[in-house]
Structures are given as structure tokens and as C-alpha cells.
Design a protein around this nucleic acid. Structure first.
Lengths: 134, 134
DNA sequence: ATTATAATGATAATCATTATCAAAGAGGTA
DNA sequence: TACCTCTTTGATAATGATTATCATTATAAT
């Protein structure tokens, strides 16, 4: 039987309140301020658990360790190859619809059961675009 | 100045001939048969180099270490959550077109410069679908 | 052939993550 | 409340993947 833990609670809460996509370590450092006895293993354990429950999503960035996202509303990620920031992008309903259509077509054509899709974009974010370009 | 090396040649060649998406280690083990003096660091070094040149692509799988793909023709990846296999899926021209359209729209709306996109599907492959379901 | 420098292989070092395990906490039940 | 069982925790060792170091070898230009 799954039991309550204060640690799991604050990890989820923090992740849902943050607007960025922290690594396990940065979450750990942050939470240690309000719970100094917290251990890094507990953070990893709970992040894994929350991912399995589908409350949290793991992001495999191109650069650096895995990141975690407490926002599970459908959206895609853009990673800036210059500053490394990952920004959330919400597709319009019509765009979302096109994607799920393609997913359906592919599932049929390949005879697979596709239950999730992820779209990663890479390039230069607004800031870095102007900085790098001139 | 960049210099030729036999090692880099066989790494690229092997990757382009293989139809799977090997990890650095499995590539190393395989190539060691034809070149026993090959070192694992050389494999990592050259894979990184080839990725930077854009001749090879790195795949961050949900499970396990990074994989490499010698096929750079536009395609997307499907990872089976049961057997872990990664299969290539080629979108139809019209599907590809819809995606690049969305990419363009997003780039404008977000004021970013998006130069690459990756679509990642997850679920059950043909084999595992029938195995698990029935 | 000589020389400059890039690439290699062995291996140490690092980084991220997972495993282990004794102690503490949660959630029953008597 | 006291007790029991099982889960979770924190500390830390262990592991796995990748990168750094460095002496040696190979490449390519002169």
C-alpha cells in the first residue's frame, strides 16, 4: 500500500509551481532550503514514482541531465541550442488535431499501438536569436 | 586541421550500414572484431564529431543509454515501451508538409528560430502489441 | 625525411542515477 | 494508546555512461 510522505508532497508541489524544467539536482537544492534533511535519493525516487503515475513528465534534453516537468497539459518543448533553456509551446487546437491525425495514420500503417507522442524543437530562442544574429 | 582516421571511417560506415540504432558500446563491441585495437573513447569521440557534422544523429531513448542513427533521411522514431526497440517511421510527404507548416507557424508565433524538430512516438510495437494484448 | 599537429588507446575522473540498508514514519488493528 | 507491518527515508556505496588526460602513433604538408 502506498503511503503518504511529506517529501513526495513538496517535490510534486514545487514542480507544479515552478515554470521551468528543473533537473533532479536543482530541485533538490531548492527544496533543501525548506527541508534540510531531504536526501537526493528521495528526490530521484519520488520523481520516478511521479513519472510512473503520469503526474510528472521526464524530459530528455539534448544537453545535460534529465529534466522534469510538472505541467502535463499537452504542450511541446523547444530547446535553445545557445542558452540551453527549454520553453513550453502550446499548439493551437487545429495544429494539435493535425498531429493526432498523423499519429493515428502512422499507428494504422505501422500496425503499432502508439499511446504517446513528443515533439522537440531545437534552435535559437528569442533572446539568443538576436544576440547571435547581431 | 581535421585528419583522416580509419577508426572514424569504420564507425561511420558501420552506422550507415546497420539498420538499428546502436549504443556507443554495442557499436564498439561490434567494431572490435574487425579492429581489435579500437578503444571505446575513440568511438565516443568520433560519434560526437559525426553528430556535430550532422552526418549522424544522436537519439535520447526513454530507456537506456544514448543511441546513434546513421540514417539522416527525414524520419521519426517509435520506441516500444515493452521490448525497447526503436523503429524508423517515414512520414508521407503530405504529413511531413503539415509538420513543417506547424514548425513555421510556431517559429513565427514564438519569435524563435527553429532549425530542427524531432518527433518521438511511444507505445507497443507490432509484435508486443499482440503479445501483451492477447 | 622532417615536422607540426590531430587522433588514438588506456585508463583515470566525473557526472548522473540506482541500489543497499538501518532507522524513522504511516496507517492500520487490538 | 500500544503494537505491528510495511513503506519511505537519508546516507552512502555502487554502478553505468561519458568525458578528460596524456603519452604514443598516424596523417598530411613541406
Amino acid at each position: 500500500m502506498k503511503k503518504y510522505s511529506k517529501q513526495r508532497e513538496i517535490i510534486l508541489e514545487s514542480l507544479q509551481n515552478r515554470k521551468d524544467h528543473p533537473t533532479a539536482e536543482s530541485l533538490y537544492i531548492d527544496l533543501k532550503r525548506q527541508m534540510p534533511e531531504l536526501g537526493i535519493a528521495t528526490v530521484y525516487r519520488n520523481l520516478t514514482e511521479l513519472c510512473e503515475q503520469g503526474i510528472v513528465k521526464k524530459i530528455k534534453a539534448k544537453v545535460g541531465p534529465d529534466r522534469y516537468d510538472g505541467n502535463i497539459k499537452p504542450h511541446i518543448h523547444f530547446e535553445c541550442k545557445n542558452c540551453g533553456e527549454i520553453i513550453d509551446i502550446y499548439l493551437k487546437e487545429e495544429q494539435e488535431h493535425k498531429i493526432s491525425n498523423i499519429k493515428k495514420q502512422v499507428s494504422e500503417a505501422e500496425e503499432i499501438q502508439c499511446d504517446s507522442s513528443e515533439i522537440y524543437l531545437t534552435g535559437l530562442c528569442q533572446k539568443c536569436k538576436t544576440q547571435v544574429t547581431g
